[in-house]
Design a binder for these strands. Structure first.
Lengths: 165, 165
DNA sequence: TACAATTAGATTGTACACAATTATTAATAT
DNA sequence: ATATTAATAATTGTGTACAATCTAATTGTA
């Protein structure tokens, strides 16, 4: 059964938000509180917003932060590989990486073997930033106030869905 | 316990992605695959992307779609109330509502009682769009391929978190 | 070996998001 | 009654996102 129907059925069973039987049956699926995507969209924005004060301290935006995570891990990769890891395309990454290059966090060089590839490599300064960033996840977690169980379950469900992208 | 630690502990228990004991203990929290925010951010973008073909049919963006949902429900409200419902501020809403007004979906009028308030009211054309939109949730659900259980659990966890915003 | 198809990035254009600031109006506190 | 404060939108500036298009390099193939 499709996920939207579950949510709608769940709402109907609880007897909430129904105006008339007919209107409820036909349009309840168009109510904000019955959406699955809307809270996902809201929660994602909210958590990025909560990262901001911590990321400001090390002068990174959230997108730059996840790009650094990829680089702390891989050290060197091309734009395509980075895009696959972050689920971002060149339209987003090109200007982002140029800014990060200006900040001295990485270098951008065309590959000798295949000139189509742009190699992105972390610098010493980029590596050093890891030391400053390492306290962020714990400090963020402390201000999220989500139970251990919810966090684990959420992680599990989202990763299952990401596998289908 | 903070949610990030749970994820990290979980990862450690599973023995994945550890390089050395020291490095694992110190930096595992900075690995993309140990983040809770990252999959949330990716999944939210992905679902909005999957809405696009359906929303293109009725010439709405995702943000305009959730604004219409609020209007289909409330018929008339001011920008502040709309912002509270959608978790968006006037910087996002002002240009969005102007575009929707141009499309004839709503009207924007200053309140007589309190000139600070801008009243946003749905038009007949806006109401009529509901009829075209009503099949979207089901059609979207069909292409999400998320289990009934996951969808319900996800809905529950996200709403619990939204309650803390 | 020409040449079509593919691939990787960059560019362009549109649409958010949101912080910070400003302008207007309303409420309130002397 | 006036000065102060608060509330509400609008504006400005920065930073994503992503579709569509373009260019250059590489690969596959007849």
């Amino acid at each position: 059964m499709a996920s939207n129907e579950i949510i709608n059925n769940k709402m109907r069973k609880e007897g909430t938000h129904m105006k008339t039987v007919k209107e409820g049956e036909t349009y309840d699926c168009l109510r904000l509180e019955n959406q699955l995507c809307f809270p996902l969209y809201v929660c994602a924005k909210e958590i990025v917003r909560r990262y901001k004060p911590f990321l400001d301290e090390i002068d990174l935006t959230y997108t730059q932060y996840i790009a650094m995570m990829a680089l702390w891990d891989k050290k060197k990769l091309n734009v395509k590989e980075l895009g696959d890891m972050l689920f971002l395309d060149s339209g987003t990454l090109t200007p982002l990486l140029k800014k990060m290059e200006e900040k001295g966090l990485l270098t951008r060089t065309r590959s000798k073997e295949d000139e189509r590839n742009l190699i992105v490599e972390i610098t010493d300064k980029g590596e050093a930033l890891k030391e400053e960033a390492k306290t962020i996840p714990e400090r963020l977690g402390s201000c999220l106030s989500m139970s251990e169980e919810d966090a684990g379950k959420l992680y599990e469900i989202l990763h299952r869905f990401m596998g289908t992208i």
